[in-house]
């Protein structure tokens, strides 16, 4: 018999559709009988959605600026080398 703790261990696999048929059926049976685990799966799903919505991540502007400068330096150097050879 699948217990709540067992279900918690494989909850992500269930959500992502990574479980084999037998395990998936066990989870579904358990969820029919257990409100706590239904809440758990629902809330875990909600956290995943939250994580996805959040990940319109902020960019570290200072780092972007530093990278931009290094790229500019390199591009300028390439261009002047090209001009010299022409």
């Amino acid at each position: 018999m699948l217990m709540c703790r067992d279900l918690a261990r494989i909850a992500s696999d269930y959500i992502d559709g990574e479980l084999g048929t037998m395990d998936r059926v066990s989870v579904k049976m358990h969820l029919l009988m257990c409100g706590h685990c239904r809440t758990f799966i629902g809330n875990l799903r909600a956290s995943i959605d939250l994580m996805k919505a959040h990940s319109s991540q902020q960019v570290d502007e200072e780092l972007v600026h530093r990278i931009d400068s290094r790229i500019k330096e390199r591009l300028d150097a390439q261009r002047s080398r090209k001009n010299d050879s022409e």
Partner: peptide, 28 residues
């Protein structure tokens, strides 16, 4: 931390809190 919330028999001892009905977008 989650493991501590189960009783010896493998059932929830401290079950998950209430389900939120707000969408992720609204929560963010």
């Amino acid at each position: 931390e989650l493991a501590d919330r189960f009783a010896h028999n493998g059932r929830w001892a401290t079950p998950p809190g209430l389900k939120s009905n707000e969408s992720a977008q609204a929560l963010m």
